[in-house]
């Protein structure tokens, strides 16, 4: 967990609200979900419905269970009680279902987690070739398309270790996109970056939002939340404490806990 770097929303690209369309189709449905680490109750009675095209920002103090929540959605963490339905498939211990959901749900990590022994291009084509069985040439074309989109096609043949943090994170986003996911999860994507590089990653994410990607994003970037999120979820002690539109959440928080959190995160 790192220091929050609140980027002022005015620095980011402005988004045409017409582009941010939310449909009625359900993308993720979580009902009565609970998770324990041994005896420790990390997530308590989570109920959340995500519609296709939503951009949800999950905020909250360290250890509030935000990351654990989104990691449950692609089964990097197992839940012990309740139901998670992603794209109509329920998450159970059935490995086939898990692999199916994982290939439909992209994830971007705080520490990028690029594969250091593979080039940027190979990082992007690995899963399409082996999971989707895409022919190599086609996978490379797709990869180049997404690398152009995140504006680093010229780095395709370098190794991750030769790139800056911001570039690595943009590659990580491109790598996820190469699987043509219907949902993207972001687990503190800018927390490990130098302040100078945060904006380039956020801009990439905003472009993605404009294209109608369903996004769940754990972040401390309140500027990002104000610019693109249609919903902010505030968590504390493993529970959803408050959810609202960004405007309402930032200007008129309801719970005491949210008020305290906002005063701490925005107060300096």
């Amino acid at each position: 967990m790192s220091e929050p770097h609140p980027v002022d929303a005015s620095e980011l690209e402005t988004v045409d609200p017409k582009l941010l369309h939310v449909s009625d189709e359900v993308a993720i449905e979580i009902t009565g979900m609970n998770k324990w680490y041994g005896q420790f109750h990390v997530l308590r009675d989570i109920n959340l419905t995500v519609y296709r095209g939503e951009r949800i920002v999950i905020a909250g103090p360290s250890g509030s269970g935000k990351s654990t929540l989104i990691r449950c959605i692609n089964r990097l963490e197992e839940h012990q009680k309740g139901k998670i339905i992603v794209d109509g498939t329920e998450l159970s211990s059935d490995l086939k279902n898990i692999d199916k959901i994982r290939s439909e749900v992209g994830m971007v990590f705080q520490h990028f987690n690029l594969f250091p022994h593979l080039t940027i291009l190979q990082n992007c084509t690995l899963a399409p070739i082996w999971v989707r069985k895409t022919p190599k040439k086609e996978a490379e074309e797709t990869a180049m398309h997404f690398l152009r989109k995140v504006r680093i096609p010229e780095q395709a043949n370098k190794f991750p270790g030769q790139l800056s943090g911001g570039q690595q994170q943009r590659v990580a986003i491109a790598r996820s996109l190469c699987m043509r996911p219907r949902i993207m999860l972001f687990d503190e994507p800018t927390s490990a970056l130098d302040p100078e590089m945060i904006k380039e990653v956020l801009d990439t994410m905003i472009e993605l939002a404009e294209e109608g990607m369903t996004m769940l994003c754990v972040t401390h970037e309140m500027g990002f939340a104000q610019a693109v999120a249609n919903r902010v979820i505030f968590m504390d002690q493993g529970q959803i404490v408050e959810q609202n539109t960004p405007y309402e959440f930032f200007n008129n928080p309801q719970s005491e806990r949210s008020k305290l959190f906002l005063s701490q995160i925005l107060g300096h």
Binding site: L76, D99, R102, M107, F109, F115, L126, V131, S176, M179
Partner: peptide, 13 residues
């Protein structure tokens, strides 16, 4: 790092 296992899992391998 555990992240390597997680990234591979998250891609559906």
């Amino acid at each position: 790092p555990r992240g390597q296992y997680e990234a591979a899992d998250a891609l559906g391998l």
